[in-house]
């Protein structure tokens, strides 16, 4: 059974590219376009990993991360934050709240795939 990745991002083209990359890497992909939807999906089916944008409508990425980390049942979910260049404070805050890693926009697709595989213990053939 493939490992699951939840992409939480409101920008459709970024969702499109991430979901293509994750599927190509062999993961099952779910998509949430805002913070509330992300939490609903985590409740219904906790993913193995979340690619979580910070600037989201309704509930931002930090709020989502806090909720995920406050529930013991979800402590195994790996969370990789999508942060913006020049916003070091976001990265620090995210790591403080319990994120496992981060990638900085504009990111390299190879870095994202490599990082996801690394956190899910999948051998990266490209590496």
């Amino acid at each position: 059974m493939p490992q699951t990745v939840l992409v939480v991002e409101d920008e459709p083209h970024i969702v499109d590219s991430l979901s293509f990359l994750m599927k190509k890497a062999g993961f099952e992909v779910f998509i949430a376009r805002d913070g509330d939807a992300a939490l609903r999906m985590v409740k219904s089916r906790p993913p193995d990993l979340m690619l979580l944008d910070i600037m989201l409508p309704r509930k931002d990425g930090f709020e989502v991360l806090k909720s995920v980390r406050s529930n013991d049942a979800w402590k195994e979910i790996r969370v990789i934050l999508l942060t913006a260049k020049g916003r070091d404070v976001d990265r620090l805050k995210g790591m403080e709240l319990g994120a496992d890693d981060f990638v900085t926009k504009p990111f390299s697709t190879k870095d994202v795939v490599r990082l996801v595989k690394q956190h899910l213990g999948v051998e990266d053939k490209l590496a």
Binding site: E11, H13, I14, S17, L18, L21, A84, K85, K105, P106, F107, S108, T109
Partner: peptide, 11 residues
């Protein structure tokens, strides 16, 4: 800007 750049770079 970062969002547009991310899309362009990714694709």
């Amino acid at each position: 800007l970062l969002t547009q750049l991310t899309s362009i770079r990714s694709f």
